[in-house]
Structures are given as structure tokens and as C-alpha cells.
């Protein structure tokens, strides 16, 4: 085998693997990315029930209802609009009223957001950047997350 042929095989293999990888990435991008919305955006947009997205905001004060079976109800708000959320299971430890959360799931036909995954943060001062940004955009951000 000549040097040229060897190089050809090497380059050919590289290109083939890269092509497959690019194909996989493009295919996966189409189907498996999830958009992030605030309650106000959900209200503006017509989102089909069943379409997955992430909903971010603050847990509305006084909205958490536990104790009806294993399903927990609460509301996520960005101070302009509020969306009712249901979640079945055990919430993360740092989930608290007034704290920032990100919930992933989809809308029910009745307009409730059903989350199958709720993320609260390890760090109690931490605000998900999306939430902080949306809150800032709406002018309700208070910079009291600093050490007090």
C-alpha cells in the first residue's frame, strides 16, 4: 500500500465519522431541544398542549398546595403573569415559595402546566440566569440576592 493510499484511507475514515456525527447532531437538534419560556411568553404564544418546554420564574407566595395525594400544585410567576403547575413526586430540597425554579413539562388541555421535572438550585442565592434575565427585563428584579 502506498503512502498516498494510506493517507486516503485515513482521511476517508475521518470524513465518514465526521459526516455521521454532523448528521446525528442535526437530527438530534431538530427533535430534542427544549425551549425556555416565562409565564408571560406562554400567555402570549399559542403553545400546543403536549409540546415540551421549560417554564421558569418564581414560585408564587402562598401558592403551594401539598397533601392531595402525591401531586403537588403551585404557581410559577414572573410578576406579570402566573401559570398553575402540577407536579407528581418529591420536590427538590431548595424548592421554596418565592424562590426561582425551572420546571420542565408540557401544558395540559385545561391550561395547567404539568411538570415532570423541577429544578431548584443548590445555592440558595443562585437564580437561574434565564429567570434573572426575564425578571430584570420586566423590572421586578431586586438585587437582594447579595449577602445580607
Amino acid at each position: 500500500m502506498t503512502r498516498k493510499q494510506r493517507r486516503g484511507i485515513l482521511i476517508g475514515t475521518c470524513l465518514a465519522v465526521l459526516a455521521i456525527a454532523v448528521g446525528l447532531v442535526l437530527f438530534a437538534m431538530r427533535d430534542s431541544i427544549v425551549f425556555f419560556y416565562s409565564p408571560s411568553e406562554v400567555a402570549e404564544m399559542q403553545i400546543e398542549p403536549g409540546q415540551r418546554f421549560r417554564l421558569g420564574g418564581l414560585v408564587e407566595m402562598g401558592s403551594v398546595v401539598r397533601g392531595e395525594g402525591t401531586t403537588i400544585r403551585f404557581a410559577i410567576t414572573d410578576q406579570a403573569k402566573t401559570l398553575p403547575v402540577t407536579y407528581t413526586g418529591v420536590l427538590p430540597d431548595l424548592f421554596r415559595e418565592g424562590q426561582g425554579v425551572v420546571a420542565e413539562g408540557s401544558l395540559e388541555p385545561n391550561g395547567t402546566f404539568h411538570a415532570d421535572n423541577v429544578l431548584a438550585k443548590h445555592d440558595e442565592n443562585y437564580m437561574p440566569p434565564e429567570v434573572a434575565k426575564k425578571l430584570k427585563e420586566q423590572g421586578v428584579w431586586r438585587d437582594d440576592a447579595e449577602v445580607n
Partner: peptide, 14 residues
């Protein structure tokens, strides 16, 4: 300015 998250399905597929 669009916000998305890329989760486990993407990585499982690629």
C-alpha cells in the same frame, strides 16, 4: 435571544 435547553435526548442520540 431565544432560550433553549439541550437535554439528555440530544446526547443519547449523538
Amino acid at each position: 435571544g431565544e432560550k433553549i435547553s439541550v437535554g439528555p435526548p440530544f446526547f443519547n442520540l449523538t
